[in-house]
């Protein structure tokens, strides 16, 4: 029944390359998170305060991002735009796809966060003599941040996990690199097992950092 010989040597030999690809994974995930946060904030504010075409644009963005598979979104940026002669590099495809997805999910989180801060907080701040900018940056945003902090962490983890789809559009991040080595040596199981461990460590690392940061940020 069990006559398979595991060969770990080729995996060990390419471990440095895999770790480097892991860094690339972290980079693309972090970058798409930053873009996603900015766009997500804009989308959330539009959906809360505006009517008309902008509102519908923001709503369609959010619903499309949340109701179609991330892989479909990647393919769309990869192959769909190719129909218009727009050929993006794999890195840009993954970055666009992940940012699009993150922005959609984060917009809903932000909206929930803003709605959870009662209006009276803003009015109280204004009546104490703060101008609108001060009231927002000193009273509302800190409270919203506290509410969305946990979802933000989760979304970053999701972004790391989703970046693995890059291997299907030819991006050589951790999964793509693994696929590359695996198809060269046919040690598919061994390579992907090691990659799974690396992903696990990355995710645990992010969660640990986030927990430490939360302890520091939300002490009182």
């Amino acid at each position: 029944m069990f006559d398979y010989n595991f060969h770990w040597r080729p995996v060990l030999k390419s471990l440095p390359d895999l770790l480097e690809a892991g860094l690339l994974t972290l980079q693309v995930a972090a970058l798409s998170m930053v873009i996603g946060i900015v766009i997500g904030l804009v989308l959330a504010l539009i959906r809360m305060h505006m009517r008309g075409p902008l509102y519908w644009l923001a709503t369609s963005w959010v619903e499309l991002a949340r109701n179609t598979p991330a892989l479909f979104q990647l393919f769309f940026f990869g192959f769909g735009l190719g129909a218009f002669g727009l050929h993006l590099s794999p890195f840009i495809i993954v970055l666009c796809g992940l940012s699009f997805n993150c922005a959609g999910y984060l917009a809903e989180n932000f909206r929930g966060g803003f709605q959870a801060v009662p209006d009276t907080q803003l009015r109280a701040a204004r009546s104490l003599g703060m101008n609108a900018w001060q009231a927002y940056t000193r009273i509302v945003i800190p409270q919203v941040f506290r509410i969305v902090y946990h979802p933000l962490t989760n979304q970053l983890v999701w972004a790391v996990l989703m970046s693995s789809l890059g291997m299907l559009v030819g991006f050589r991040e951790l999964s793509g690199e693994t696929q590359f080595f695996a198809s060269r040596t046919f040690r598919i199981f061994e390579y992907f097992a090691v990659t799974a461990v690396i992903y696990y460590v990355i995710v645990k690392f992010i969660l640990a950092i986030s927990r430490l940061l939360a302890m520091r940020l939300f002490r009182y």
Binding site: M1, F2, Y4, V157, L161, M162, S164, L165, M167, L168, S175, T178, I188, F189, F192, A193, T195, A196, Y199, Y200, V203, K204
Partner: peptide
């Protein structure tokens, strides 16, 4: 926790290649 922390695509490839190993 492992199944939540490893990308689904890796899990799929891993299992698909692991199943024949154990018959």
């Amino acid at each position: 926790d492992i199944f939540r922390s490893v990308p689904l695509i890796i899990q799929l490839v891993l299992f698909y290649n692991f199943a024949p190993i154990v018959g």
